[in-house]
Design a protein around this nucleic acid. Structure first.
Lengths: 331, 331
DNA sequence: CTGAAAGCGCTTACAG
DNA sequence: CTGAAAGCGCTTACAG
């Protein structure tokens, strides 16, 4: 069967402890012993049993990343960066999907506590995260995105300021009748809506509730459907703020189906700057941020938390920037 | 500290084995004992230590899924379905990225052998997968996509037939000068190119090597760049077969930048039917398949392999269908 | 610089 | 239906 440290030790004529020392570099081993052990390791094709190591050490070298919906290009890009960030720190990533269910989030917490993962990076969907409660025996957790009360560490982007800036750009370009697509109870939607409201308010534009367009889901197909239904009942707006780039794609498609073109008839802005946003026709004006830096930061914060559970709660804000492309034009 | 089976047993006044029986339902336990144990479990907020269980059982309940690049919407959708498939079978998914490096694939194999995962679903990039060698002590692996020699189980779609059908559609619509974008050494590219060649050959169209357009990468931005460069040097083709939907998005963008429209000037087909393909302008003609079924099948095959390492190698072909949308038109 | 012993938390034969 | 013992493979004090 498979070789264990014991087998390796026997072959090299040393004790298991010495093999462990060679493997982990904890203590200095004499060059001669080391080479004998290394020879045995190679000859027996030794692979450590990580479950055993995890049981002994209380660490598995694995972290969990939980996103609401992996199919969203935004989630996919973030996963990529989390895997990269983890790999750079010798960690592996277990991936989970919450699909927005608080129940699923609770389950993830307990899984983390079951110690197959050392910690959890969670993208909570609602502002009031029922899963992350004070007083409960929490595993190390980092929230990505904003939540109501910072009970645990979090890394986020100032969504309110970003959307305020995006909406401000549209206003500066002369648009007044500005819709926003993707409103709903999700934390992200609430914050971005707040940014939209602020921008309109400071330009003294009255908020027209009929221009707040909710979506069932945030896939482009959902957005196309919702916005198409909106266009059937209302005059087209002059510009549209979309909660995400993916929603923007759906909105553009719905506009096109109604014989309207972007940006000639309607200006569109998105959020996230996913890869495809640069090549769509037209290319999207959107909010960009350094996703790798975001992921690196979240993993670092998680590692600090694992190393020091009693440390004070950390909150890190990652900067964003507005990228102006072809989907917006002056009126 | 955290409660163990021992603590639970002590509180319930039974042996650890009885607690284990209640937890795993291996043997029947008397209702009275069961309720006492359950009370203790709840009172002590017991969470099993999965590392210990994994060490004992040789199973962790985790499988690894390795894709070349998680950022690709196709990979993202597949990951979503793998996580769903795994969840339905009580499994969790560790996600890995090979970025097309054979070295990384080898590393993954040994990680699987290190037993933090019970098995591995791997999307190999090249046809000659150096990592998956005969004679080597392999962990349970299922390859998704075609490889040269079926040394291990695999689940795939008949890429050759699918692209032959796609290309055939373009020919039937009267196109003759048909380019293909995304050629290269990757297994997927080779197979899809073979389908393209077959279709042209049976229509007695001579293959024009200048119409085989390689791409650095398979992101839409890569495709836009490559195809833009192509358009700078050549007459536009009548139609374009794109290796993936994502490549198609880039090609459409490049055509647009050159003042050409789809499908009026050029017809376009993609492959994968990712979510956004239905809402792009124009919506893409592409190859669709049941991704959830594909993922379920791959997980089932992997589970069979784990259960029975000596069983004969399995190969499952998942059906596809051509979806005709607005990106193609008769000439 | 190295060895022998103990134990992480679980479950599986082995007995009753 | 339940208990006492052993062991999965590793590493950490404890001795030398």
């Amino acid at each position: 069967m498979r070789a264990t440290v014991r087998d390796v030790a026997a072959r090299a004529g040393v004790s298991p402890k010495t093999v462990s020392n060679v493997l982990n570099g904890t203590f200095r081993v004499s060059p001669d012993t080391r080479s004998r052990v290394e020879e045995a390791l190679a000859a027996l094709d030794y692979v450590p049993n990580l479950s055993a190591r995890g049981l002994r050490n209380g660490r598995t070298g694995m972290i969990a990343v939980a996103m609401a919906d992996l199919r969203m290009p935004y989630s996919a890009e973030m996963c990529h960066h989390f895997v990269e960030a983890a790999a750079g720190r010798g960690l592996h990533v277990q991936i989970e999907e919450t699909a927005g269910s608080g129940e699923r989030e609770v389950e993830l917490m307990s899984r983390a506590r079951a110690q197959l993962v050392d910690g959890l990076i969670l993208n909570p969907v609602r502002l009031e995260t029922t899963a992350v409660q004070r007083d409960v025996n929490l595993p190390p957790v980092v929230l990505i995105g904003e939540v109501d009360q910072p009970i645990v560490d979090h890394v986020w982007i100032d969504n309110v300021a970003a959307v305020r800036e995006l909406t401000g750009l549209l206003i500066d370009q002369g648009h007044r009748r500005i819709a926003i697509v993707g409103t709903g109870p999700m934390a992200t939607a609430q914050l971005r809506l707040a940014g939209y409201r602020k921008a309109l308010r400071s330009a003294e534009i009255k908020i027209d509730r009929s221009l707040l367009v909710p979506c069932e889901g945030w896939h482009s197909t959902d957005a196309a459907e919702s916005f198409s239904a909106f266009l059937d009942r209302h005059e087209p707006p002059e510009a549209v703020v979309c909660m995400t780039d993916t929603i923007a794609f759906g909105v553009i498609s719905a506009l096109h189906a109604h014989g309207l073109s972007v940006p000639d008839d309607v200006s569109i802005v998105g959020y996230d700057n996913i890869t495809d946003s640069a090549t769509t026709v037209p290319a999207l004006t959107t909010i960009d941020f350094d996703k790798q830096r975001f992921a690196d930061t979240a993993v670092d914060v998680l590692l600090s938390r694992i190393a020091n559970p009693a440390a004070p709660i950390m909150s890190v804000t990652i900067p964003y920037r507005l990228i102006e492309r072809a989907s917006t034009a002056t009126r």
